[in-house]
């Protein structure tokens, strides 16, 4: 059973932090960041965050590590060859689905 007080406070914390980050520069500061290091840092953050969130969590995102590994390889290949968001997501989903049916058949 989840505690609504905890969940809703957590959601509020997320929303408040996110809003303050967005609102302060546009509504209050209106200055340019002069530090080249900090600008570079902020440029790289999204890629680092998404990678850290994906690995190794992706391997436990499905019913079996093997099907997830198959889906991971499919996603990397599709993305490498420039397919769009939806194609990569659904392509890796399809590979996982097929891999799990094969695993059921043979093991």
């Amino acid at each position: 059973m989840i505690s609504y007080a905890y969940v809703l406070t957590g959601v509020l914390v997320m929303a408040a932090v996110t809003y303050v980050i967005r609102a302060l520069p546009l509504a209050v500061f209106r200055r340019k960041i002069s530090s080249r290091f900090f600008r570079s840092f902020l440029f790289y953050v999204p890629y680092a965050v998404l990678s850290a969130m994906t690995f190794p969590a992706i391997l436990s995102s499905t019913a079996s590590g093997w099907s997830a590994a198959a889906g991971l390889i499919a996603a990397i290949l599709l993305a490498w060859f420039g397919r769009g968001l939806l194609t990569v997501a659904l392509g890796s989903t399809a590979v996982v689905f097929v891999a799990e049916r094969l695993l059921e058949l043979f093991f």
Binding site: I76, L78, A79, L85, A89, T93, A94, F97
Partner: peptide
């Protein structure tokens, strides 16, 4: 189970290219 990977697939589609 298969759709569990979809979100990570999208993350990869964003960072790999």
């Amino acid at each position: 189970s298969a759709l569990g990977i979809a979100l990570y697939g999208m993350f990869l589609a964003i960072i790999i290219p």
